[in-house]
């Protein structure tokens, strides 16, 4: 989707979040010197084209007790990897799910699923559910627990065109 300068200004204004008022888009319009109707139309257009996935709350996993996470990785038969990946992604405890290229011999895994739980035991338990779901299509798997966050910056788009 081609984004113009006004779309980018809207993104820059809202990517950190909407204001906590009953009419947040009116407040965004005022901040940018736009009509509320134009803000709503542009936001809706961006949602329709997938630039905006949804307007929602992002809970703090850690604060709500989801303190353990493991990057589970799976070597899944290519013939069924797409179908099975969709089923794994739909599980309520998987926050990211992708097919990626293998890098043999060091890395035989093609399906990546980030699993969250309140403890490592719970992550292992949920991992077991994926094992059961994949069945014989899965030849090998591993779980990579994070030891340390080395860097974390939000993805930020500047107001550039």
């Amino acid at each position: 989707m081609m984004l113009d300068q006004t779309d980018r200004a809207l993104i820059a204004e809202t990517q950190g979040g909407l204001p906590f008022v009953p009419e947040p888009y009116a407040a965004v319009a005022q901040a940018l010197g736009l009509e509320e109707g134009e803000v709503l139309a542009r936001m809706q257009a961006m949602q329709d084209r997938g630039v905006i996935r949804r307007v929602a709350v992002a809970p703090n996993h850690y604060r709500l007790g989801m303190t353990a996470n493991g990057m589970t990785v799976w070597d899944v038969d290519d013939a069924v990897a797409s179908d099975l990946g969709a089923q794994v992604g739909a599980l309520g405890f998987v926050s990211h799910c992708y097919l990626r290229p293998r890098a043999r011999p060091l890395w035989p895994y093609n399906l990546f699923a980030m699993v969250h739980g309140s403890s490592r035991d719970e992550v292992e338990d949920k991992r077991g559910q994926i094992v059961a779901l994949l069945g014989a299509a899965c030849r090998a798997s591993d779980t990579l627990y994070s030891k340390r966050i080395l860097k974390k910056t939000g993805l930020r788009l500047t107001g550039r065109t």
Partner: peptide
């Protein structure tokens, strides 16, 4: 929502942008 953001229960409220789509 504002209180929960301030307390860190939610990290944000607003549009989730697909960075690749941008």
């Amino acid at each position: 929502l504002g209180r929960m953001k301030e307390a860190g229960v939610i990290t944000r409220f607003g549009p989730f942008y697909d960075a690749a789509a941008m």
